[in-house]
Design a protein around this nucleic acid. Structure first.
Length: 286
DNA sequence: GACCAGGTTGATC
DNA sequence: GATCAACATGGT
């Protein structure tokens, strides 16, 4: 069991960070521990005030994954432009964007279109349980997210059986491509933002919204501003009232993300996640 | 049983 | 380039 003491200038809220819907493989147990699988690690972690206690990973991993060395106060100050975002910041202060493994994040957001978060978590868990590698960890046997080579060998029918529905072929195609191009993530990471975005949208099943999620949650492009139905609602009502009540067409998506990038700045993605997280406690997954 | 959910695709005008 | 139905699934 290891610990990290958070400094007073280092706000972090583990519960908000893991329950806000950015990552799909964490579960909170009844006794207050979060357990999840990241790459080949089965991690168990909890927070009591300024102390993080964890096992299954070293301190370096925990710092990197939760981006504990990122100056969150400075980031929040940079996006704090008006009372609406200010309220979201007050409500969700300590939420951090984690650094997810690219391949798992890509498939996760292929699985996350036109559906809800509990269903996405079920799909990921089913794929891991059936096609991932078993690893011994602090909470018994856990399963890694299946690597591209493995998933490329799974039939569409078997993926549908993991409740992917019509997304099964998209996931399979992504697995085939990434197993044949193992350097794809590094190539995307080295591109400028808009080009990286276009590169991700070459995957079938990855449109503008899913691409922005992967850019933000896996590649650390913090200017990415994913616009889902909730964010569309919030931004339209708060900042672009002429869009309120309308469906999010591609042109409107483009307008919202450009506005938000200009308005909130280079960490617009944090603004997006704080607005999303503060959308209402009733809809927050635990 | 309709409607919604961290949308995207392919066809059509 | 804009619009539209179809898409599998599970929750309310």
């Amino acid at each position: 069991m290891k610990t990290i003491e958070l400094g007073p200038d280092q706000p972090f809220d583990l519960n908000l960070t893991l329950s806000c819907g950015q990552a799909f493989r964490w579960e909170k147990t009844a006794d207050g521990w979060w357990q999840g699988v990241v790459d080949r690690r089965a991690v168990r972690i909890r927070q009591e005030r300024d102390r993080l206690t964890f096992e299954g990973a070293n301190e370096g991993f925990v710092r990197d994954y939760f981006r504990l060395d990122q100056d969150l106060l400075a980031i929040l100050a940079s996006i704090d432009r008006d009372p609406a975002i200010s309220a979201a910041i007050s409500e969700c202060c300590g939420l951090r964007l984690v650094g997810q493994p690219a391949w798992e994040c890509l498939v996760s957001y292929i699985c996350a279109t036109n559906t809800n978060i509990p269903a996405v978590k079920r799909r990921i868990a089913l794929m891991a349980g059936r096609y991932g590698r078993p690893i011994d960890g602090p909470f018994g046997t856990a399963y890694t997210f299946p690597d591209p080579e493995t998933l490329a060998g799974v039939s569409s029918a078997d993926l549908r059986d993991c409740k992917l529905g019509y997304r099964a072929d998209y996931a399979r195609e992504a697995a085939v491509f990434t197993s044949e191009n193992p350097d794809w993530a590094k190539r995307v990471a080295d591109l400028p933002f808009e080009e990286a975005r276009q590169a991700l949208m070459q995957f079938r099943g990855i449109g503008p919204k899913a691409a922005d999620c992967v850019l933000l949650f896996a590649f650390g492009f913090f200017e990415a501003f994913p616009v889902d139905v909730w964010i569309h609602r919030i931004v339209a009502e708060t900042y672009l009232p002429d869009l309120a009540g309308r469906k999010c067409t591609p042109a409107e998506y483009e307008r919202i993300r450009r506005f938000s990038r200009d308005y909130f700045g280079g960490y617009a993605g944090y603004a997006q996640e704080y607005l999303y997280c503060a959308r209402g406690p009733a809809s927050r997954a635990q």
